[in-house]
Amino acid sequence: NIFRAAGDLSHLISILILLNTIQKSRSIAGISLKTQILYVLVFLTRYLDLTYRYVSIYNTLMKLFFISSSIYIVYLMIYKFKNTETEQIDTFPIEYLIGGSFILSLIFNYKFQFGEILWSFSLWLESVAILPQLFMLQRTGEARTLTTHYIFALGAYRTLYIPNWIFRWISEGRVDYLAIFTGIVQTIIYSDFFYIYYHRVLKGFKFELP
């Protein structure tokens, strides 16, 4: 359906914006390494199911793309364009996010089974993975426009999945409570950012937090 297609496209675009920003400016200023490491974890734990579950060629290719691009971005950030200044303000305690997601995945899953726990873990972790990045924005008070486009596209992906879930609930009777709940949590976390993005970036102002 259109929402899911738009969501996936927006997810894809967010990664391309990020890669392009890093390659062109040859800098990772303002980008949170911790958030990027969390995304590697999210993609690895959710998408390694491609080794034992086949959905479609589209699904497989997208999974491969997200795993490899997220690892590549972390590689660029650590080895190629290391930025100690940015690292110094990247101080969000992600161990709590990882630990909390792990505990929640043990409690909430469709079956107490390795693959299902990993899937649940990835959903919880994804819902909060942007926090170190938003935290960094708050500390610096402003961001490069491209960085805000990246965050917007990434947030739009899960937000667009919400009407997709409603659509699938109506048309197929399919309801994935875990994905829906964590997707809503994720959208709420982004809501403040969306608001500022809409009021400043789209109207041509610099991204500055009030």
């Binding site: 899911r4 469709y110 079956k111 899937w119 994935d176």
Partner: peptide, 10 residues
């Protein structure tokens, strides 16, 4: 093993 929900999304 089949999962309860078919994980076919990204």
């Amino acid at each position: 093993t089949e999962s309860i929900i078919n994980h076919d999304e990204l």
